[in-house]
Structure formats: structure tokens, C-alpha cells
Nucleic acid binder design. Structure first.
Lengths: 242, 242
DNA sequence: CGCTGCCTTGACACGCCTCAACGAGCGTGG
DNA sequence: CCACGCTCGTTGAGGCGTGTCAAGGCAGCG
């Protein structure tokens, strides 16, 4: 199986074989995180940089009244805290209610990359900026779309992102989240998520069972959601260099 | 009057007098943007980098059905498109329904900075990451807070950010936006924004008239909004280096 | 076997939206 | 100088989307 980080970065920059070898070496030591564990907690300053290699994690924030807002899903190839060296303390937490495997990369390795491998470093900044674009897209989603299209949009995004790293086939992917997780992502109640989901299933837009989402007609779902993948800034691998 | 960019970056890195002089020089050629003009339009690739020096601008996205979502306010010292060299095409627009003044910085100048002034460059990345933190905070705002607290939170954020660049006094600041702009920011209808505002005024939390917002009791508003400025990652100027 | 977590359903309440109309302020042109 | 048209803020009435509360079903698991 191919390395998801490399697969992802190929969409953000042209890598050489040497670059790939360096990345491959960095990703060697996988570590399994059990379900419901935090990877990084708000207010701390992680010593290493964390990278998801398998499964799902999420950025989230807990409010004083116990509400939780999920602000991003981290899928294989995504960094948790690439920027913490610049920013200092984490202003949110990263956890995995579902379990995942990660790689811990020493900060010094990142420093070495920025010194010796400018192409890789540029690709890492590309990834950070795509994260920001994704965040903006979520904001549009929450602000302007009704619940059913919000949910559809989220599913489209995950399909494309997972395909990019080889973790989804043409019309389905594994999806370990609970309806409560979706509710905290979209700012809806669980009850409403449930009903909306039934509605989407009734329209044959999304079929979700046994921790797997299947999409009978991808194009129809994308139209329904108003999904435009441009914000992910994926370069088709044959494109001219940017 | 002091340069807002320098004032802002002082919160993100330790600058030397030489750094300040370089930044000062970069900001010399102001250009006025008339109200309702776009500074950068979605789908284009700007040739220069744009920096707001006075007034307000905003990142926004237009949906096919005409809805608008404002995703960020850009105040003096904020960059519009620092990252476009890495990302390629803009995935959203930047405009100013209210007029503002900006500086255009050639890309080559940014390249020079990254070669010759690593401290400044680091500060610029800090600014980008703070933008991302702000975006996350807006997501929490929209997802978890009712309209009145959303609005209060937005006002708190703007007060602090404008104070940082010397554009607000202790309890008030100029605010040229319309209620429609606020509605498109928070994902609410104008009518509801209007009523919520009256409610806040009734509680003496916010007084907004003649394009100026005044806050009778800042601490009370922050508590009401659940505002915690940590996400802005402002270093107090006496702090130890990060 | 009886937990416990998750999904599901129903009834009801409320926040927020839409439509529609009107008023205040202001620039423009007759 | 006033009439006009524009934008923006304000109000009212009514409806829908979504939240809350509460209960029950089902599967997984110790």
C-alpha cells in the first residue's frame, strides 16, 4: 500500500524520487492510538509533529457548557500540528473518538526538511493552506446551506479527500463516525442529523450502513450539495507545474 | 501614526529596527479602493500581494443562488493573499463594500524577504496561522452559539484586533458595516440581525450608532460572548520569546 | 444476562426565516 | 428648494427548520 502523505503531497508539488524516499523514511514508525484518546490537548505545546497514517482524527474545541465543535477531520496524510512551532500553545484539541494510527515526527526533522528539501517544505505549506481553504468551505457550508445539503457536502469532501490518498474507491469509503460526531461537526442536534440522514437515504443520495458510506450517484450528490472541489487545490498529476 | 503591519507583527515575533525599516519601506505606496470594489476576484491569480492599511475589507464567497458568505474581515495590517504564490488561483474573492486603502507588494519583494529577512518571514507565517485560528473560532461561533452571543463574540474579536493595530480605543471603534454585512457573516437574516442588535442594545452590551460601536462594559460583553482571545496568539510585548 | 452506546421516533417548543410594508437619511436633478 | 429615488434600518405576521425532552429498540460486550 502506498504512503498517504506522499500521495497527498504529489497533488501539491512536484516531488523527486529523492523527496519521496525522505518522506517514506519519516513515516516508518507508526503508532496506534486507541479510540477516544486525545492526540494533542488544548493548551499544551507538543514536542513533536503528528501525522495521521490510518483512520480518522479530528480537530475539536470544547465549550465551557460542554458543547463540542469539530472543526476538521484529519484523514491519512494530514498533519495535526505542523505549525505549533510558530504559534506556541495549541488553541484547540485533536483527538480520535474512533482510533487511528499516527507518526510522530521530531521538530528537528522538520527543520532539516526546511533546510535541505525546499520542495517538500513548499508542499507542506501547500497542505496547510489547503486546510485553511477547507475551513473556509466549512464556514460557507454552515452559514448558507440547509442541513441536508450540508451533510451531502461533507460526504463529497470526504470522498474526494480519501480518494486522493487511496483510502476510498470510486463511490464509497469507510466511515467510523457516529451521528453525534456529525452533529457536532455541522452544529446540528443528533435528532436532526438522524432525520436528515433518513431523508438523504430516501432520495438515494447516500447509503450509510455498517460504518461505510456508499454513494449511488456521485455526480448527483455533488450537484445536490453544490460541491466544487476547487478549494482543495488538487493538481491532477498530469497538470503543468504551478 | 504608526504602521499597522509593524504593530501587528510585533505581536508575532521579535523584530529588529532593521526589520521595521524594511517593513516601513514596503508600505510606502498606499492606494485607495473605492466602496463596493473587489480587490481580488475568485478564480484569478493576483500578480502582487495585497495588504490592508486602512479601513475594512472582507473575504467572501458568492453561491450560485446569490447568497454571500463573508469568511473573514481584513483590518489594517492584514494580508489578503499572501499565499497565492503557493496555491495558484484564488478560491474566494476579497472586496470592500466600505472602501479601504491598501498596499500592493510585488511577489519578488516577498521572495527577497524570505531570503534575507527570516524573522519577518516567520512573522508573516505567524499571521497566516492566526488567520486560520480565527477561522476556526468563527466556525465554533456559528456552530455552537445563538445569534446574540455570536454577534457579541464578533464585536469582541474586532475590538481586540483593532486595538492591536492602534485602530480602536479602550471601548469603541469605527464600524462602517451594514446589518446586511453582519447577516452574511454570521449566516443569519438581516431581520434577525436587526432584532438581535436591539436586544443587545437593550441589555447595554453594545451601542452601535453613526458607524461606530461603543461597548459600555467590555468585560461583561466578553463574558456574555464566551470570548477567549487566546486564539489570536497575541504576545504581550513584554513576554518571553516564543 | 444485563449492561451501555447508538440509532430511532414522537410531541412540542422556539429560534430564525420570509414576505411585506414603512420610515429615516441622503444624494441627485429638476 | 423641493421632489424623487435609493439604501438602510425597523416592524409585524406567519411559517418552517431545527432544538429539546423523553422513551424505546437494537446490537455489542463483559
Amino acid at each position: 500500500m502506498l504512503n498517504p502523505l506522499i500521495m497527498k503531497l504529489e497533488h501539491g508539488a512536484r516531488l523527486t524520487d529523492a523527496d519521496r524516499a525522505v518522506l517514506e523514511k519519516i513515516c516508518r514508525k507508526n503508532r496506534q492510538i486507541p479510540p477516544c484518546a486525545d492526540i494533542i490537548t488544548e493548551g499544551t505545546k507538543p514536542a513533536n509533529v503528528h501525522l495521521v497514517m490510518d483512520g480518522f482524527a479530528c480537530r475539536y474545541k470544547l465549550l465551557p457548557d460542554g458543547k463540542r465543535q469539530i472543526m476538521a477531520f484529519l484523514v491519512p496524510g494530514d498533519f495535526c500540528d505542523l505549525h505549533v512551532a510558530i504559534l506556541g500553545e495549541m488553541d484547540h484539541s485533536i483527538g480520535t473518538p474512533w482510533g487511528c494510527s499516527i507518526v510522530e515526527i521530531p521538530k528537528e526533522t522538520i527543520d532539516e526538511l526546511s533546510r535541505d528539501h525546499p520542495r517538500i517544505m513548499r508542499a507542506l505549506w501547500w497542505a496547510t493552506l489547503v486546510d485553511e481553504g477547507t475551513l473556509r468551505s466549512w464556514l460557507v457550508n454552515m452559514g448558507q446551506r440547509p442541513a441536508d445539503r450540508q451533510m451531502a457536502h461533507l460526504v463529497c469532501e470526504l470522498l474526494v479527500r480519501l480518494q486522493t490518498v487511496g483510502c476510498a474507491d470510486a463511490d464509497s469509503f469507510e466511515f467510523p463516525l457516529s451521528q453525534t460526531d456529525i452533529a457536532d461537526t455541522l452544529g446540528l442536534s443528533v435528532v436532526h442529523v438522524n432525520r436528515t440522514l433518513q431523508d438523504l437515504r430516501g432520495q438515494s443520495l447516500i447509503v450509510w450502513k455498517q460504518k461505510r458510506i456508499h454513494i449511488p450517484d456521485v455526480r448527483r450528490l455533488m450537484v445536490f450539495a453544490g460541491f466544487n472541489p476547487k478549494y482543495l487545490h488538487l493538481r491532477q498529476l498530469g497538470d503543468t507545474p504551478s
